[in-house]
Structures are given as C-alpha cells and as structure tokens.
Simulated assay, not measured.
Amino acid sequence: MTQYVWGYLPEYEKERTDILDAVDTVFRSGQLVLGRSVKAFEREFADHHGLAHCVGVDNGTNAIVLGLRALGVGPGDEVITVSNTAAPTVVAIDAVGAVPVFVDIDPETYLMNVDQVSAAITARTRCLLPVHLYGQCVDMAPLEALADRHGLVILEDCAQAHGAVHHGRIAGSMGRAAAFSFYPTKVLGAYGDGGATITDDPEVDARLRRLRFYGMEDRYYVVETPGHNSRLDEVQAEILRRKLTRLDGYLARRREIADRYAEAFAGTDVVTPVTAPGNTHVYYVYVVRHPRRDELLAGLKEHGIELNISYPWPVHEQSGFRHLGYRPEDLPVTSRVAKEIFSLPMYPSLSDAEQERVIETVRDVAGRL
C-alpha cells in the first residue's frame, strides 16, 4: 500500500553524499558533544534570523521548556496559547508548572485569534505563546502591543515555520525568544531529534545555555540553577548546517507544490489554505478542509493513499488535559475545524507524478461523495 506521508528516503538518496560527509566530519573531529558543529550551527542559525544568539537543544519540546524557564515562566503562571497545535506545545507549558490558557482560532487560517487574547489576560498571565502553525505566522503586532501594555513576554513557537515571513520579519525574530524543532519532517529537519531557542537578549541566552547543561556555566563545575541535559547533538548540528544552505530551495519547491494544489482544487469542496495578509507561507503541511472528511479519507485509503490529520484531537479535548476544565464548545472554531481538516502530501521530494495521482484521486473520491 502506498502511503504519502513524508519524503525522508527520496531526500536522503539525493543528499546522501553530503549527509554522510557531515557524519564523518563530526566523527573525525574528536568533539562529539557541544563541539565545533553545534557552535557553528548556532551562529549560522542566529544570523539567518538576524538575531544575536541561538542555543541548540535536543528537541523542539525542550526548546519551549527551556525558553519558558529562561523567560522566568514557572509554577502558577498562565501562558496564553491555542489548542489547535501539536500537543508538545502544551506539554512544555505544563512541564514548567505553568497553566495553559487557550483562545480560539481564526476559521480561515486556523491560527490564533488574536482578538480574543486581551480578554484572556489575568493577573497571573506571564507569557503569550503564539504558534506559527502549518507554515505561516500569527498576526504579531496586536500581541506585541498587549505584551508591552501588560508587561508580558512573548515566546514564539516556530516548529512549523522555518523561513516564514510576516510583514517583512522572519518567524522567530518577533518575540523575546523563539523555539524551533528540527524533527525530520520539519521544513528544516535533522536526521533525528533536535531543536533550538533563539533570542536577541544576552541574559536570556546565558540562562538558556545553563539550563541545557544541568544548570552549569561550564563543563561539570557548579550548578547555579538546576537545569536539564538538553544538548543538540553534534552530528545533527552538522547535518543542519548543510541543510540550512539549501533551505531556500526547499521552500521554493514547497510553494510550487502548494500552487499546484490550489489550482487543482479551485472551485471544489476541498478548501485550500488561506494565507493571511502580510504573510509568506512556507507550507510545512498543506492543510485542507472538507465537510465529509472522514468519508473522503476512507475512500482515499481504498485507493492506497493514507493521509495525515493535523490535528484530529484539539489539546483541550484530550484526556491528559481534562483537568484544565475546557469543554469542546469553549473553543467552537477549534473543535469544528478539527473534524474537517486533513493534510495533503507536502515535502520537496514529492514528484509531480506523485502529486498528480493524489490530486486526481482526491478529486475523484470527493466528487462522488
């Protein structure tokens, strides 16, 4: 059975020589932990975002955890975010002892409805955590204004938005800090887990560096504040350095694929993504909607095409977060959208022929519903 999920193997075949050279470079360096490759990647990734600092960590979840801790968010603090996100966003908030507070999403972009944030702010609110979902940015100007007015910090969740631009500013450059994931399926993906937190604030950078290394200033000395063992691996850092130079090419191909989908499904019941004003979308995933989503996916499966849903269960409806006390009707747009969205294949190594097969099959199955 054919399963269109992601393009790891075709990408690896195309880039295999460089990837293996990256591995060999690290193994021959004599530095396997926090060595030259991590330092170089941190410098290059920070430069890519026009910021002073980047701290490589072991995964995207801990990029948020350490980001929150470095910003002073802790037990009892409230963090305003969305339920339409990957669960790790909220898991990270819970991990520092803070309380996630959800606002609903825009019905067209599925991004945070920033008009609801002001009403959600309380005396306990410490942080705004916008999720730049699916490859485009939340409207940041209203959030920045609220943060300034109420003395809040902004931590951007950029796990799905490498290279996305919002009114001329790149994702990750608009908050006090920003967290990235380099999970293999990401726009900029490693060959295993990886993450980073970036900032222009030297004090936040210093805290991040301590927190990712047990709370120590240097190797195996004195713990100042208990931290984590959350270091980016040297091999993954070297691979990411090589792939960062190819990021523009990855993005161009994703936009080609997105344009072809948009043209193919125009005038059908398949609702294609809406790009918010001022945004440059990078299409981490190509999320569409259909009123009979489950029937459509079942029909596609009969033709050997299994597609992903991002995300079928909003965080506020999951059993692990039942203690927060939210009901589905508290976030009506989030709950409604979750019943209709699904993702079409989107990765740079997707061939034109593979995409055309998906398009033809989706149009055929949807047309018979």
Score class of each variant (00 low, 15 high):
6 W>P: 00
8 Y>W: 09
21 D>Y: 01
24 D>R: 15
45 F>I: 15
48 H>P: 00
54 C>M: 10
55 V>E: 02
57 V>H: 01
58 D>N: 13
69 R>N: 02
70 A>Y: 05
70 A>M: 03
76 G>T: 12
86 A>Q: 07
86 A>T: 15
86 A>I: 07
90 V>K: 09
104 D>Y: 11
106 D>P: 00
110 Y>A: 09
111 L>H: 12
117 V>K: 09
122 T>N: 11
123 A>V: 00
127 C>H: 08
130 P>L: 05
158 C>Y: 09
160 Q>L: 11
160 Q>A: 15
164 A>I: 06
175 G>D: 03
182 F>P: 03
183 Y>A: 14
184 P>W: 02
185 T>Y: 12
191 Y>S: 09
195 G>A: 09
196 A>D: 04
199 T>I: 06
209 R>E: 14
211 L>S: 07
213 F>A: 07
213 F>P: 00
214 Y>C: 11
219 R>V: 13
228 H>V: 06
234 E>S: 02
240 L>G: 08
242 R>A: 12
246 R>F: 01
253 R>F: 03
255 R>W: 04
257 I>P: 02
261 Y>R: 05
273 P>Y: 10
279 N>V: 05
279 N>T: 06
284 Y>S: 05
288 V>S: 08
292 R>Q: 15
301 K>Q: 08
306 E>C: 02
309 I>V: 15
309 I>Q: 13
322 R>A: 15
329 E>L: 02
330 D>E: 09
331 L>F: 02
342 F>C: 04
343 S>K: 06
348 P>K: 03
357 R>T: 13
365 V>P: 01
